[in-house]
Design a protein around this nucleic acid. Structure first.
Lengths: 134, 134
DNA sequence: CCAAGTGTGCTAGTTAGTTAATACACTACA
DNA sequence: TGTAGTGTATTAACTAACTAGCACACTTGG
C-alpha cells in the first residue's frame, strides 16, 4: 500500500492520511488484520513528524477503522468484515445521484450545498419529533 | 425575512449569514430585486461587528447571489430568475438519495464522505481525459 | 452643496487548529 | 532479563481564520 501527501494543498496532513487509509479499506486494498506501517517508519518515509502520523492513527482508531496495540503496531480492525458489501450498495445510490446532478450542470460545491440543505431538513424534522440534537 | 445566529455553534458568523440568505433565496423568501437589511442595521440587530456582515455580503456578491450598490444598499441579483425551478428538480434527486441512505442507517458524516468519494472519482476521471484541475 | 446613510479598506487582536519537540510506557523476542 | 521497537502523553511553536475597531469614499435627497 502506497501513501502520498500533498504538502501544499492546505488540507491537514493527518486528515490526508486518514482519508487514504479509509479509501484503501473501502476499495479492499487493506483488509481486516492487515498491519499498517509503523508510526515512525511512515513518518520517516513521508518526511513528517511522528506525532502527526500518531494523530491520524489515533483518530482512525476512535472511528473504529484500525486497532492500535501498544508495543506491536497498528492493524485494520477485525469488525469490518461485512462492511464493504453494504458500502457497495450504498455507493451505487450516491453514484447515481451524483451522475444525474453533474449531468444537470451542477458543480461539486453546488452538490455539497444541496446535500447540506437536505441534511439540515432532516435535522429539523428530528428536532420537531423531540429528539435531542447531538 | 428573519435572520438568526448561533454564537456558540463554532460555525463562523459570516458563513451562517451567507447560508441563511442563500436558503431564503432558494425557498423563494427572497426574490430578485429585494433589498437586504443594511450592513449596520443588521449588525446592530444581531449584536455583531458590521465588518462581519460586510464580509458575508461581499462573498455573497462574489458568488453572484446579491449585488452591492455603494451608497444604496444590498439587493438580490436580477439574474436568479429561473433558478428556483431547476433547484426544485435537483433537490428531489438529492432528497431521494439521502432518504435511502438514511434508511440504510448511515449518519450525516458518512453520507458526506460518500459524496466526497464520488466527487473524487469524477475528478480523477476528468484528469485522465486531460482536463485541467482547477 | 451639504448632511446623513450607505458600502469599502486597512489594521490589529483573538482564537482554534495543526504540527513539531521531547520524554515516557508498554511489548516482543533473543 | 534487557534491549530494541512499538504506541502514548505533554508541551510549545506556528499558522490561518475569524472578528473587531476605526477611518475612508460614494450616493441619495433635501
Amino acid at each position: 500500500m502506497i501513501l502520498r501527501l500533498n504538502q501544499s494543498s492546505g488540507i491537514p496532513l493527518y486528515l490526508q492520511l486518514m482519508e487514504q487509509v479509509k479509501h484503501a479499506v473501502e476499495t479492499g486494498a487493506l483488509r481486516s488484520g492487515d498491519q499498517l506501517p509503523t508510526i515512525r517508519k511512515l513518518a520517516e518515509d513521508l518526511v513528517m513528524n511522528p506525532n502527526t502520523v500518531a494523530r491520524a492513527y489515533r483518530e482512525l482508531e476512535h472511528e473504529g477503522i484500525i486497532e492500535l496495540r501498544h508495543g506491536s503496531g497498528a492493524f485494520i480492525s477485525e469488525s469490518l468484515a461485512g462492511v464493504t458489501k453494504v458500502t457497495r450498495k450504498v455507493q451505487a445510490v450516491m453514484q447515481s445521484a451524483v451522475e444525474r446532478l453533474v449531468a444537470a450542470g451542477l458543480t461539486g460545491d453546488e452538490i455539497r450545498r444541496l446535500l447540506e440543505n437536505e441534511l439540515a431538513v432532516l435535522r429539523d424534522a428530528k428536532r420537531l419529533q423531540g429528539a435531542e440534537h447531538e
